[in-house]
Amino acid sequence: MADNPSVEAGLSAFTVTLIIRRFDPETMDEPVWKDYDVELYPTDRVLDALHKIKWEQDGSLTFRRSCAHGICGSDAMRINGRNRLACKTLIKDLDITQPIYVEAIKGLPLEKDLVVDMEPFFASYREIQPFLIADAKPKDGKERIQSVAQREIFDDTTKCILCAACTSSCPVFWTDGQYFGPAAIVNAHRFIFDSRDEAAKVRLDILNDKEGVWRCRTTFNCTEACPRGIQVTQAIAEVKNAILAGKPAIPAGV
C-alpha cells in the first residue's frame, strides 16, 4: 500500500457499506439486495468499491466496465437512486453515513447483477441512422467545410458515449420500451443539425412518430442523469422545433 496516492496524501480509509441488488437468472426468480462492507478512501470511486468486492469478497459479482475513466460508457448504474457512471462517482461525493445503494439501470431487461440487455437501447439508436449521409460531392472536390457557428449548434450532442444513463432514467421509457428514448434523439440531433448531412428530413420523419419526440414529457431526468453534461431535454426540444419547422435551423455557411 506504500505506493497508494491516497495514503501518501495523508488520507485515511473508512468502512463503507454498499447494498447491491444481486440477480442470478440461473438460481433466482427475483433480485435480492445484499450488503458488503468495504474499506475505501474518499478519493475512491464506486467502481473501485465494486472491484474490491469482486476481487476480495465475492467473485460472482457481475458488472460491466471497460475504460474505467468515463469514456466508454459501460458502467452506467443506479447509485443511490440516480443514474451515474460508477467510474465517475467519487465516494466523498456520496453520504457515507448511509449505505450506498447500487443497482442496474432500469427499463432494460436485467441479465445478471448490474448487467442489463442493451439491445433494445441500441436498436432504437440504429433506427435513427447514426452516420453521416452526404451524397453530393464537396464544392472543390476536397472538403465539406463547416463554419464555427455551424459546428457549434450540434457540439453538445457529439459528447454522447451511449451509456444509456439518460434513456434508462426516463419514466416514459420505463413504462413503454417502444419510445426511442433520449439517447437516440440526442444522436439524431447530432446529425440533423450537422450542415454536412443531407438526411435531416429522413431522421425528422423517423422521430415524428407516435413513439418519437412527442412522447417526451420534459421531466429533465435525462439531463440530470447525463454523465457528460449534455443538455438532453434541450436537444429533444430543438428536434421538436425542427419537425414543426420542417427543417433544422442551421446557420449560414462559410
Binding site: 440504429r126 441512422q129 438526411a199 423517423i206 415524428n208 412518430d209 407516435k210 413513439e211 418519437g212 412527442w214
Partner: peptide, 22 residues
C-alpha cells in the same frame, strides 16, 4: 444485428401524425 443499409426506408407507421397535432 448489424447496422441497416444506409437510406433504407423507415418501416414505421404512415398516415396523419396525431401526436404532433396533439
Amino acid at each position: 444485428t448489424t447496422i441497416e443499409a444506409p437510406r433504407s426506408r423507415p418501416t414505421r407507421r404512415r398516415g396523419v401524425n396525431w401526436e404532433k397535432w396533439g
